[in-house]
Design a protein around this nucleic acid. Structure first.
Lengths: 207, 207
DNA sequence: AACCATATTGACCCGTCAGTCAACAATGGC
DNA sequence: GCCATTGTTGACTGACGGGTCAATATGGTT
């Protein structure tokens, strides 16, 4: 065993790659820019990644995997509805925090800096988020909290879209905004739109 | 004056380019694919466009110009609020029709097939649409139809996002859905969320 | 210090296209 | 039919950048 490899290399490269991809998109980002930024050689890049696309995939997959883990929290179907709503709010706040922390990659994905060959990953995630949202609405309906005349497909789309757009704006902010207030505004708007009984929809002030 | 130029050339090329860009994105679409699809030569392409990017710009600008014209219709501030809402619905329906008719280009833009250098055009449009939406909400507030406690910034974001996502889904549909019903569902959800007086928010059945 | 195994490097190779232009084709006027 | 003019073509060029690999550096081991 002679000469151990530099353990920081891959991390440095991933960081630099992320920055380059955010700045120029997958196609226009040059491997040499990435290696220069990481203070490494071009060859070093190919010790850690099969190709430029491979590095991109690793970044995206890492981000989406952590994201998916946050979104697909188990819903306790037996819980009191109010508890579900509260838990929903908490999880959303975590999600917003996560997006803020990872706003560079988030912008990359949300703005389609990825080429067509990676779009399916983002689309798939968007679809899952929307399905998740649809389930929650359906549950609310079944419990009688939400209106019975809602079209689940279009309604869940609109809700997912509202969040989507707010997150897009969030990740583009120069300073961290009041995530909790943003979230409350959105949830309040949507809850009132969903509720069967308008009075119940008014948000209780959070403790 | 000898030999008039083929008047169909540019139109053929634009159509083929649109198709190629939708299919592969700006970077990956090859000029030779475009010309082959249009049944023209590569040289012919450069008689009509400065560069590949120029062709792309012409397609996008054409689409956005027509779109902007539809969105920025004058709001009659003196009109009865109910009239404004009705007019809003009609205009949205037109907009949805437009998106459906032009779903190929719409998908191209919404999914970021455009490289970073063109994103500002889409972003600018999204921003204008959102501002427009904000103004309508503000008007509703001033008239007392909407809640006073709304955060205009976040609320307008959420509303714009809801439409945005629904349009994204619309342009991805294989068959034309019932645009009017989709629109009603969205408007209904949002109006109930916005309204100061829940009773007033219920949509009157359209004539 | 000498040696070895492995890590690292960056000059080079080579495929891919955007864009050019010299040759050719078509048209209208005479 | 012939010529002048303008339209059209597609083989070619040159730039670019992803990926390779022979040469070199490094650090541990004896």
């Amino acid at each position: 065993m002679a000469r151990p490899s530099d353990v920081h290399a891959k991390i440095d490269l991933l960081r630099a790659a992320e920055q380059a991809f955010v700045e120029h998109g997958l196609e226009k980002a040059r491997v040499e820019d990435i290696t220069a930024k990481a203070g490494r050689s071009k060859g070093s890049f190919y010790l850690h990644f099969q190709s430029k696309e491979d590095a991109f995939r690793q970044i995206v997959e890492g981000f989406l995997a952590r994201l998916a883990a946050m979104v697909e929290y188990p819903v306790d179907l037996d819980a009191d509805f109010e508890t579900i709503i509260t838990s929903w709010h908490e999880k959303d706040l975590e999600l917003f925090e996560f997006f803020w922390q990872n706003r560079a990659v988030a912008q990359l994905l949300l703005h389609g800096g990825s080429s067509a060959q990676f779009r399916y990953m983002v689309d798939e995630f968007a679809e899952r988020a929307r399905t998740n949202c649809r389930m929650l609405v359906e549950l609310g309906q079944a419990r009688g909290y939400y209106r019975q005349d809602l079209d689940l497909d279009v309604t869940s789309l609109a809700i997912a879209g509202a969040y989507d757009r707010v997150v897009r704006e969030l990740v583009a902010q120069p300073k961290k905004p009041d995530l909790s207030r943003w979230l409350e505004t959105v949830q309040d708007l949507l809850l009132r739109g969903l509720a069967a009984n308008p009075e119940r929809a008014r948000r209780r002030p959070r403790s």
